[in-house]
Design a protein around this nucleic acid. Structure first.
Lengths: 121, 121
DNA sequence: TGTATATATAACCTATTGGTTAATTAACTA
DNA sequence: TAGTTAATTAACCAATAGGTTATATATACA
């Protein structure tokens, strides 16, 4: 069994799965909603498998509503990736400038509230 | 052939390779330096392969110095990952608070300079 | 020149990934 | 109750990933 961060990165290493996440970032969607853009290129069971990979990686949660399976983004795994990325900030600090600008517009001069589990292993 | 972001994520989906990046984030290292912590568990050719994966993913560059091959982190791929992550910021905005604190300490109230190639595809 | 060191390549093996089709389960609906 | 829709499971397959050992290639050095 892989460690959880490896599982997350490997779930992200597929354009179909990233497209599904992009769709989910615009709101909940059930399996056939998620499948729709891909059914020209792949079967429904293939879609089911992709969703299962996202679930196991902690990127997506799936619930039940009658015969439907509404899916949503699960923030946990994103936090893990963002935390890992922190140590390489110096390597993407050009985009850091953009972020800084964003921060100024959205929450000018607000003080940090810290973050729970910031150092969890 | 995979798209470049998929290649990068899949390079990151391995703890050995992430450990190598962590080592490189502390400074240049040649192949045998990078190999050292792993030689109890794997052969040198295995290490060579891991480094090649990191190279192809754009996360590492390798140069020549006599019979040595000094490796260094290559920021390009990190920027791509950070850019991709942007669209999911709302899902990791707890760590965002930490970042905000960091920004205040490192570059208080500095204005953005923007970033080259911010929207490259 | 010959030997040691650093690294890469080749050939091979096994497990995993990403897909398929066919069959199954579950829930709604006429 | 029978049929339809939503989703999953099973069995299979080819390609890729991650490892191995053995061999080859550079470069330095005595």
């Amino acid at each position: 069994m892989q460690d959880s961060l490896s599982q997350t990165f490997s779930a992200l290493a597929d354009p179909t799965r990233r497209a599904m996440l992009a769709r989910l970032s615009k709101g909940e969607a059930n399996v056939s909603d998620l499948a729709k853009p891909f059914l020209k290129n792949m079967s429904l069971p293939a879609v089911t498998k992709h969703i299962k990979v996202l679930e196991k990686a902690g990127l997506v949660t799936k619930t039940r509503d009658a015969q439907y399976r509404p899916c949503a983004i699960n923030k946990e795994a994103f936090v893990d990736v963002a935390d890992w990325m922190e140590q390489y900030r110096m390597y993407w600090e050009e985009s850091f400038d953009r972020l800084e600008a964003y921060l100024e517009t959205v929450a000018p001069k607000k003080k940090s509230k810290g973050r729970k589990n910031a150092n969890k292993k």
